[in-house]
Nucleic acid binder design. Structure first.
Length: 902
DNA sequence: GAGCACTGC
């Protein structure tokens, strides 16, 4: 049965697809119903009503300001005259395209002469002998013939076969040899920035040339390429952006898409576009590169395109499962204390939160299944709990390797920060390692400051064993060459998207077989290795073959916007062409959100705002925040906040000093009750420190990542350039020219509200504390890392947030406390209340009441503000502050007048 | 009272 069909079928019946597992050859689904948070929403907080109290003085001032200014609706400037469709200027034709045929012939022979002369160099010959050892080398002729004969080719090859560095290079050499050098334009996409750079550098070195000559790379905000560049390695995201301007990829002769087996969203999306593009570009050659594991899927998708297999080359890795590890190490698993008193595994099933794979094991008759193993091992298997990781078991396995096995680094795969931290403490506490200079114990996590430390990659000195405690980051992003022992706990935290509750989840779950294979391979890069799997073989055999593709695990608003901007037709019918189409409910949620923020109209067509948002490489909400920041003259802070939200949080999480780190973050936030303001202040302080040459110590003392801050700074510049491309700012002026309200935190928070809407939380007083509610899921908690965590009473009645994630509970991660007026003036559209004289927002979820006069005044101001904004969106160059001075001033007046909610 | 991982003209 088709998995997608099943997924929908299950969803409709309240089950989740992620509960699926393999039992023999059939897919089994456990009956864990999906909670529906919407169930009793009305009962819990539908009746709340916020009363707006506006002082007479404020009312008069607002009236006064408003009466002085009237925004004209400029009917003549219709949308179509400004944006007559996506008629973006076509890419400037490259040097090659402009060249005459004679020039081209000349260039082609120059390229060939250069290539030939480099082949004879001594360094090139040693490179050549290295290349000849790669399994891909023997496939050269067959591969090149297949590329000529087939428009689409699927290459499957394991790590170490050399497909990424060799195949694009073969094409390049062949084209240049045959005097087609001037005409060829090869692009090879990589999912990650680092691999795009390192692969390009490797290929350039193999060809004996500088990076940026015939071989170059391009990633966001960074490129090394020239007019001579014939082979470009770029991230998939860069190619997708290029497609917006150049839907037919004119001038590209060969396109290679690498790592498609990972099923990233960008790659899955690109593949749909390419399948449609191929008939329009019959001479374009497409090579899809995948791990062996699912090559057929892609071949089928492209009408049974031929598959070529390249054998891999890694050293053999011996594999031990839990039962073997127990037998070998003699470790005794202890029953959990709660269950100790004569309880059996059966009882545990009902008491511990479980999953199908864990249940599968819990239901096995140990004595029958493991008859060949010792009694001690069987007792341990009986006591072993699949649902929770036994850190002592991990520690013991490390100790065993250190004591009895030959030298070589150990890599331990764990699920997250907490496990890494606890295990580190445990090992340090037990001190089994003896003399500390014989071991190097390193935590490795994306948000830990150790991520960029050299010692992780460098070979540790002789007689010193390196032990790395890592998350999934070590599975593909970071490669540690000298690993000989891998310890795999079999789980990873995985994002999923619960479309029913519009909720992103981040929960630990069993990895796929493909992932387990990849983890094992990490032990065989330099010599034969060992993989200790801390879970039984029966669980491994029942693991799903692959992880669910990203397109089925993520909210889709940004993807939907891109589909509209590429003019690929109706979103749902386009996505239905996907390798595995997403849940229609996810698509519906995304479209609804885009309508809510005003990017799509009722007909699902792009609005003026939507067209602007397409040009920004950002999530639509953050893009809107950026536009509103430029419109309302607080560009500087909004550039920073948008960059942090789009990239990553610059605060690092050191393991031993987390209280200090929290305190620093709070001090940046001051009394703003805002994580976004904390980010902003930290960035400003970093800039100052950098100017006075104190960057390093500043970052260290304030728990900030210099690399992230640098990236944010670069992204700010990119955003400014993009805003100037669409006319919201003028390139000759600086950010300061658009920053009149940049220091006005009320205004900045109002713009945050405009961008983050409809991510609104109601703060409700419950005695001395505050409870938090959202429309979609009801009660939520403030994430403990937020500056707003453990605040008992807030000055203002609402929070806006950038992310809501279900982990241990449903958490709002980064939030900002905002007033009623911010919401009324900058939130979603207002509608008259169904019940009385008030106004409503978010389909009646938020309800405001006030005297008729006040309501009318707010509605009038909001109406004028909307008109002004609409004009600005359609005529970005409009000077709002001469046109709508009074309106903006009235809004500012109101934002500053909010009555204290406490 | 807790933080999988990537990425963008």
């Amino acid at each position: 049965m088709d998995r997608t069909y099943l997924q929908t079928w299950l969803r409709d019946r309240g089950f989740t697809y992620s509960n699926a597992y393999n039992k023999g050859k059939t897919l089994v689904f456990s009956k864990v119903p999906l909670p529906d948070y919407r169930a009793d929403l009305d009962e819990r907080h539908g009746s709340t009503q916020k009363e707006i109290k506006m002082s007479n003085q404020t009312e008069r001032r607002v009236e006064d300001l408003l009466s002085k200014s009237k925004v004209n609706t400029n009917d003549s400037a219709s949308t179509s005259t400004i944006y007559s469709r996506q008629t973006l200027p076509s890419t400037p034709s490259s040097v090659v395209e402009r060249a005459t045929d004679i020039d081209k012939q000349k260039l082609s022979s120059q390229l060939r002469d250069l290539q030939n002369s480099r082949k004879t160099m001594a360094s090139a010959r040693s490179m050549q002998s290295f290349r000849q050892k790669l399994p891909a080398f023997n496939m050269r002729e067959g591969f090149l013939k297949a590329v000529v004969a087939n428009q689409v080719l699927v290459i499957s090859g394991e790590t170490g076969c050399g497909k990424t560095t060799q195949l694009p290079q073969f094409i390049l050499e062949e084209e240049i040899d045959n005097l087609r050098g001037a005409d060829c334009n090869i692009i090879c996409t990589q999912p990650r920035r680092i691999s795009a750079i390192s692969v390009a550098a490797r290929v350039a070195a193999e060809r004996g040339e500088e990076l940026g000559e015939t071989v170059g790379y391009q990633i966001r905000l960074e490129s090394k390429r020239s007019a001579q560049t014939r082979l470009l390695f770029c991230t998939t995201g860069v190619l997708l952006r290029r497609l917006v301007q150049e839907p037919d990829l004119v001038g590209v002769s060969h396109l290679l898409v690498d790592e498609i087996h990972e099923r990233g969203m960008n790659e899955d999306f690109l593949i749909i576009i390419l399948r449609d593009l191929l008939p329009r570009r019959p001479e374009l050659r497409l090579v899809l590169m995948s791990a062996t594991i699912n090559a057929e899927l892609f071949s089928k998708y492209f009408g049974d395109a031929p598959i070529m297999q390249i054998p891999g080359f890694t050293f053999p890795v011996a594999e031990l499962f839990l039962e073997d590890v127990l037998e070998k190490t003699r470790y005794k698993v202890k029953f959990e204390r709660d269950n100790a008193a004569g309880s059996s595994r059966r009882k545990r099933i009902s008491s511990v939160k479980s999953d199908p794979l864990s249940d599968l094991f819990e239901n096995i008759d140990i004595d029958k299944e493991y008859g060949n193993y010792s009694i001690a091992t069987r007792q341990s298997l009986e006591a072993w709990c699949a649902a929770e990781l036994d850190l002592s078991l991990v520690e013991n396995t490390i100790e065993y390797i250190c004591r009895y096995e030959a030298e070589g680094a150990i890599l331990v795969f764990l699920t997250g920060w907490d496990e890494i931290s606890k295990l580190l403490d445990k090992i340090k506490g037990n001190n089994f390692l003896g003399s500390s200079n014989r071991f190097l114990l390193l935590p490795l996590h994306g948000s830990m400051p150790t991520v960029n430390q050299r010692e992780i990659f460098e070979r540790s000195p002789v007689n010193m064993r390196k032990i790395v405690l890592a998350t999934n980051i070590a599975e593909s992003s970071i490669t540690i060459d000298d690993v000989v022992y891998v310890i795999d706990c079999g789980k990873a935290k995985e994002t999923s998207y619960d479309a029913l509750n519009k909720l992103a989840c981040l929960l630990p779950s069993w990895i796929s077989k493909a992932s387990a294979h990849q983890r094992r391979g990490r032990a065989g890069r330099v010599q034969p290795g060992f993989c200790y799997r801390l879970y039984p073989k029966v669980i491994h055999d029942a693991m799903p073959q692959f992880q669910l593709p990203e397109i089925l695990r993520t909210p889709l608003q940004e993807l939907c916007l891109t589909i509209k901007s590429l003019q690929l037709g109706a979103v749902s019918s386009f996505l239905a062409k996907s390798l595995q189409p997403p849940d229609p409910l996810s698509v519906k949620n995304a479209i609804e959100l885009l309508k809510t923020i005003g990017a799509l109209d009722d007909m699902e067509e792009l609005t003026s705002l939507g067209r602007h948002l397409c040009t920004l490489p950002l999530d639509p909400n953050i893009g809107k925040m950026l536009l509103m920041g430029s419109v309302f003259q607080c560009l500087d802070p909004v550039l920073t906040i948008a960059a942090a939200l789009a990239y990553r949080n610059p605060f690092v999480l050191p393991m031993d000093r987390k209280e200090e780190a929290d305190a620093v973050k709070r001090s940046f936030a001051g009394d703003s009750c805002s994580d976004h303001i904390a980010l902003l202040k930290a960035f400003i302080a970093w800039k100052e420190a950098k100017q006075s040459g104190r960057e390093r110590s500043f970052c260290w003392e304030n728990f900030l990542s210099p690399m992230t801050l640098k990236m944010m700074d670069d992204m700010r510049n990119q955003f400014f350039d993009l805003l100037s491309d669409i006319g919201f700012v003028t390139k000759t002026r600086t950010v300061k020219a658009y920053n009149h309200y940049g220091s006005d935190l009320e205004m900045v928070c109002a713009v945050l509200c405009a961008g983050l809407y409809p991510n609104v939380v109601q703060c409700k007083r419950r005695g001395k504390r505050t409870a938090f509610y959202t429309k979609d899921v009801g009660k939520v908690d403030i994430h403990p890392s937020s500056v707003n965590a453990f605040v008992n009473q807030f000055p203002l009645p609402y929070l806006v947030y950038s992310e809501k994630v279900k982990t241990a509970s449903i958490y709002v991660r980064d939030s900002t406390n905002i007033s009623d007026y911010a919401l009324l003036l900058f939130g979603g559209p207002l509608s008259p209340s169904k019940t009385g004289e008030g106004i409503e927002m978010l389909g009646g979820y938020l309800h405001f009441s006030a005297p008729k006069r006040t309501i009318e005044l707010i509605q009038r101001l909001r109406g004028e503000l909307d008109k002004l904004l609409q004009r600005k969106i359609e005529e970005p160059a409009l000077d709002m502050f001469s046109e709508g001075k009074g309106v903006v001033a009235a809004a500012v007046e109101l934002l500053h007048s909010h009555n204290d909610y406490r």
